[in-house]
C-alpha cells in the first residue's frame, strides 16, 4: 500500500478541535482527490494537519510511514504543501524563493537547476528573476505551487490552488497537477468550485462541520441531496452536452 491513509484524525487550531475523528478511504497514487465543503468545514485545517503544520491526533500513514513521526526534514522531502496565499514583503526573486524551498531542509546540491526546471514546467520561467513582491496574485499562486513541487514530493497538498487564477490559468495549473499526479503522486486539493472539482477530481471528499460527509467519484458525491444538506442550497446537477457535471444553484433552502 503506497497511498495516503487517514484514520481517526483530530486536528486542533489553538484549543479548538476543528476536525474530529476523521477517517478517509486510502488515497491512491496517480489520483487527484478534492476536499470540498462549505466555509469553516475544516478543509484547510485538515490539509495543514496532514502537512504537520497543526497538532494532530490519530493516524496519518503514507505508505508504511507515519507522517507525524517523521522529522521536519523527512516530512518536507515526502510532501509538498501549497498555501492559499504567500505572504509579501520578502526581498527575494521568484527563483530564489523556490531554491530556498528546496535548500532549507538541507538539499542544497542542484537546487538552482531543480528550481528553474519547475518554473519552466509551470510556464513561469520568464518570471524567474522578478521580485516576488511585484507578482500578481495569480503569479504568486503559481510560485507557491513551484515551491511545493521543487522537492519532488510523493504527496502534494494544495490549499485552494486556483482561487486567484483566471480561467486559462486554472486549466493550466490543473493540467499540470493532473500530470504531476499521473507520475505516481498522491494529490489532495481543496477546491471551492464544485464544477471545477467535478471536472478534475478522481474522488471528492465532502467535509461538513469537521466530519466526512461523503466520499466517492464526482458523480456519486455531487448530488442535489448533498448540496442541500451540506451547503444549504437548492440545486440541480445536470450534464452538459459533453457529459460533464454542472451544478446549477436555484436558491437557498428554506
Amino acid at each position: 500500500m503506497s497511498g495516503l491513509l487517514i484514520e481517526g484524525l483530530t486536528v486542533s487550531y489553538g484549543r479548538r478541535r476543528i476536525v474530529e475523528g476523521l477517517d478517509l478511504p486510502p488515497l491512491m497514487p496517480g489520483e487527484i482527490t478534492v476536499l470540498a465543503g462549505p466555509n469553516a468545514a475544516g478543509k484547510s485545517t485538515l490539509l495543514k494537519g496532514i502537512a504537520g503544520l497543526l497538532p494532530t491526533r490519530g493516524r496519518v500513514m503514507f505508505g508504511d510511514r507515519d507522517l507525524a513521526a517523521l522529522s521536519a526534514g523527512d516530512r518536507a522531502r515526502t510532501l509538498g504543501f501549497m498555501p492559499q496565499t504567500l505572504p509579501s514583503g520578502a526581498a527575494l526573486s521568484v527563483l530564489e524563493s523556490v531554491i530556498a524551498a528546496r535548500s532549507a531542509s538541507g538539499e542544497g546540491a542542484g537546487a538552482d537547476r531543480a528550481a528553474m526546471a519547475v518554473l519552466e514546467r509551470l510556464g513561469i520561467g520568464p518570471l524567474a528573476l522578478d521580485p516576488l513582491d511585484r507578482l500578481s496574485g495569480g503569479q504568486r499562486q503559481m510560485v507557491g505551487l513551484a515551491q511545493a513541487l521543487v522537492r519532488d514530493p510523493a504527496l502534494l497538498l494544495l490549499d485552494e490552488p486556483t482561487s486567484a487564477l483566471d480561467m486559462a490559468r486554472q486549466v493550466r495549473l490543473l493540467t499540470e497537477v493532473r500530470r504531476v499526479a499521473a507520475e505516481g503522486r498522491v494529490v489532495l486539493a481543496v477546491l471551492h468550485d464544485l464544477a471545477l472539482a467535478a471536472q478534475w477530481a478522481d474522488r471528492i471528499a465532502v467535509l461538513h462541520k469537521g466530519r466526512l460527509h461523503s466520499f466517492g467519484t464526482p458523480a456519486e458525491v455531487v448530488t442535489p441531496a448533498m448540496l442541500a444538506e451540506v451547503y444549504g442550497v437548492e440545486a440541480r446537477v445536470e450534464r452538459c452536452s459533453r457529459g460533464r457535471l454542472m451544478v446549477l444553484i436555484d436558491g437557498e433552502t428554506v
Binding site: 503544520l53 509538498g80 504543501f81 520578502a90 524551498a101 532549507a104 531542509s105 515551491q147 522537492r151
Partner: peptide, 13 residues
C-alpha cells in the same frame, strides 16, 4: 525560507 512565511518555512522542513 522564513522570509517566505512561517507556515511555508515549516512545510520546507
Amino acid at each position: 525560507a522564513l522570509r517566505l512565511g512561517e507556515e511555508q518555512a515549516r512545510s520546507f522542513g
